[in-house]
Amino acid sequence: MDWNHNQAAAIARIRATLSPDELASAEKVKRINDRYLGLTRDTAIQLAFKNLVASVAWHDAADENRPGKRRILAICGESGAGKTRAIMEHISLLSAMGRYVDEDGNEINPVLIYEPRSPCTPKLLAIEGLRKLGVPVRNNIRENEAWDAFRTALKAHKVIFVVIDEAQHAVVAANAVEQQKIADAFKGLVQMPDWPVRLVLAGVPPLAEFLSKHEQLYTRRTAIRLEKLEGETGLATIDEILSKIAAHGEVSIGVEIDDKFKKRLSHAGAGNFGTIVQMIRGAVELAVLDGSSEVTETHFKNMYLAYSGCLEEENVFTHPNWHELEPLKAFMRVNDETPRKHRARGQKKIKFGDRP
């Protein structure tokens, strides 16, 4: 079955139901979300990716086991910090990481990107990579066999750059022995004398803790932490991205952009760049879909209602004591936190299917 044809047909049918004005608004919303918003931190990320590429260019099989070479790039930050979007953007800017046709006429993608399932084990981490490459894996494969097969498959598919997104899934539930196995596996990937592999790891803070524990990875990695937007610098950044996103949507900001408003916005997005960007885009999208030429406080209020599921009177953009609200818990209600009742001593446990 041609899934691409089916997808195109399904999308075409939806588009046929929209008016020209609705299609124009949809295209504008797409353009708003397609644009990448670079920050000062992107200079460091760009340099780190260029160094990974350069390290492949001077690959020396006889010298590959020497420590101190930065073959691993780790990008850590809270959920919503913009890690994945930044990685995808910088990969797209490097021709060395783009698809090409080899001397045999085969289309090659030198970049493998995958996300391990949670919870994950050292063996499953290798198996997920094999499956992403389209390599069949037998059910009873052993851990060492899985990693051997993964290394072989990378060479066979001419993959040089391996990107593991949400890499904390592999280590957050792992014990000390399993974490050591994963560290050894990462080291083995980037030290193959007959094939240069460079590893990019993205994840939330448990990944940073894992990388800090293992000296064998410390001497082989470049680490970049995507910090929260805090303080005067954070507020200045919020001011900048507000203006940029409004320009992308071809609308003006009809709200007084003072420090109080920017602090409300930062609080709503937990200080995370990616989350704040999505919230601003959400407000601009509402203005575009309304046919409005400016983004108002109502658009921000309605955006937060939709994003958080909060009560009307607990909206960060209208509440007088907004700093006391917890955006991550805005969807919860009082009865959602009812404590579990413990069985009295001697009381039988209720089995599945029985009435209490």
Rank of each mutant, 00 (worst) to 15 (best):
G188N: 13
A153Y: 12
N51F: 00
I182H: 00
E166N: 08
S55D: 11
S293E: 06
E89S: 07
D21Y: 00
L47R: 13
H299D: 14
I238G: 05
G68Q: 01
N315S: 10
Q168P: 05
I11Q: 10
I164N: 00
L52V: 13
E326Y: 09
E232S: 15
P119V: 15
V171R: 02
H59D: 13
N51H: 11
W3K: 01
K50N: 10
K349A: 13
A54R: 14
E230R: 08
V137D: 02
P116L: 07
F49L: 00
I141H: 07
G346A: 03
I141F: 03
Q179A: 03
V295H: 03
I45T: 13
A9V: 10
V171P: 01
N321H: 12
N109F: 09
I108T: 12
L39H: 05
A57C: 09
R345S: 04
L47A: 12
D42A: 12
S308A: 15
V171S: 02
E209P: 01
N139S: 10
I182T: 09
G82P: 07
V295I: 14
L242K: 02
K187C: 12
T233G: 13
D60I: 07
R225W: 14
E240A: 11
K329Q: 09
P136C: 09
H5G: 00
L93G: 01
L73I: 07
N6T: 11
G38H: 06
E250Q: 14
L154K: 03
A12P: 03
R70W: 12
T275P: 02
I141L: 09
G98H: 15
G234C: 12
A12W: 04
D102V: 13
D239Q: 08
A344G: 09
I224S: 04
A57N: 01
A86E: 03
S79K: 07
I45G: 06
R225N: 11
I253R: 01
L47V: 15
P320T: 05
I280F: 09
N175S: 03
S308C: 10
A170Q: 01
A170H: 03
E107D: 14
M279C: 01
M192L: 15
A61I: 01
R225K: 11
S243P: 04
K349S: 08
N272I: 03
N65W: 08
L93F: 06
G82T: 10
L130N: 04
V162F: 13
N272P: 00
K329F: 14
G254L: 06
V29T: 11
A57K: 14
V251T: 06
L189M: 08
W322T: 02
G309Y: 13
T296K: 03
K30E: 14
N272D: 01
L305N: 08
V29S: 05
F300L: 02
A26F: 10
